[in-house]
């Protein structure tokens, strides 16, 4: 069995339990349901709110470098810390957080395999409502590494040039345009469908019954052999607003080690609203 290309970016719940409270280990919970943290979290974990803390509150964008520095400083995180991210919905928004941490150059950030549900259902794992006491730091981020992020012009070029794997990670109903967004989700687009030439690989194909990632061999068989993602080409993953895309971006870049993988966080809410952009159903 082959290993993940970058096995160090993934930790198991047992590893987290063993390393709780050790210096230099910091836990951050990022959920879709922003109330989950308050109800109970892993002892010593801080919580980030994806709606108010990970997005620019004025324009549609990721948070600025200053805002990222303030967020991490206020959370008591130093650039040399090992940061473990975890969250609900199989780590959707913690994968988005991971992507953001990498854009701002944080060296050692990892995802907890299986997310909060796995921890919750293991009898030997504790949760608390206690908010940790934080000693703020002066966090200094690197200049953003925008190599990890695809913007619209690049996506349009990739679509026209057909020289890049476009991976649509949304559900089948979103891909075929039957629905524009999953039920209950408020952010939508003007049109349904997908980017012409995109391959449909729903994000959850990457995880097993317990929510943990499939093995490297299984992942390679799915993405490369079955779905035709060409490992010699660049890749762009997209979804609706960038959270599920980050999950697949993580799989392609870190678990499978594909060369140049970007997440298109504008995703369908941007693309599906562009006047004149080509769409397939």
């Amino acid at each position: 069995m082959t290993k993940y290309s970058n096995p160090e970016v993934l930790v198991e719940t047992d590893w987290v339990k063993q390393h709780l409270g050790q210096p230099g280990i910091r836990l951050v919970e990022i959920d879709v349901d922003t109330k989950a943290y308050e109800a109970g979290h892993i002892p010593s974990a801080v919580g980030f709110n994806w709606q108010t803390q990970l997005q620019d509150q004025l324009r549609r964008d990721i948070i600025s470098q200053e805002a990222f520095e303030k967020l991490l400083g206020d959370a008591g995180i130093s650039p040399t810390d090992t940061v473990i991210l975890y969250g609900d919905n199989n780590n959707w928004f913690s994968a988005y957080g991971f992507w953001l941490f990498k854009i701002y150059g944080h060296k050692d950030v990892r995802l907890m395999n299986g997310g909060r549900v796995k921890w919750l259902n293991e009898n030997d794992k504790q949760l608390t409502t206690e908010v940790p006491k934080i000693v703020p730091t002066h966090y200094k981020a690197a200049t953003p590494n925008l190599e990890l992020r695809a913007m619209l012009p690049e996506v349009l070029q990739a679509q026209a040039g057909k020289n890049c794997n476009l991976v649509d990670v949304r559900s089948n109903d979103e891909f075929t345009g039957k629905v524009i967004a999953p039920p209950g989700m408020t952010e939508t687009a003007q049109r349904g469908g997908h980017i012409p030439g995109a391959k449909s690989v729903p994000w959850n194909t990457a995880v097993g019954a317990d929510g943990t990632f499939k093995t490297a061999d299984e992942l390679r068989a799915i993405y490369v052999d079955q779905k035709g993602v060409d490992p010699k080409k660049d890749s762009i993953a997209y979804c609706r607003i960038g959270e599920r895309a980050s999950h697949t971006w993580f799989v392609l870049k870190y678990l499978l080690g594909l060369p140049n993988v970007k997440s298109y966080d504008g995703s369908w809410t941007e693309y599906g609203s562009i006047v004149g952009a080509p769409i397939e159903k």
Partner: peptide
């Protein structure tokens, strides 16, 4: 939100 393996 989106029924998926492991989510419960």
């Amino acid at each position: 939100l989106c029924p998926a393996p492991g989510l419960g």
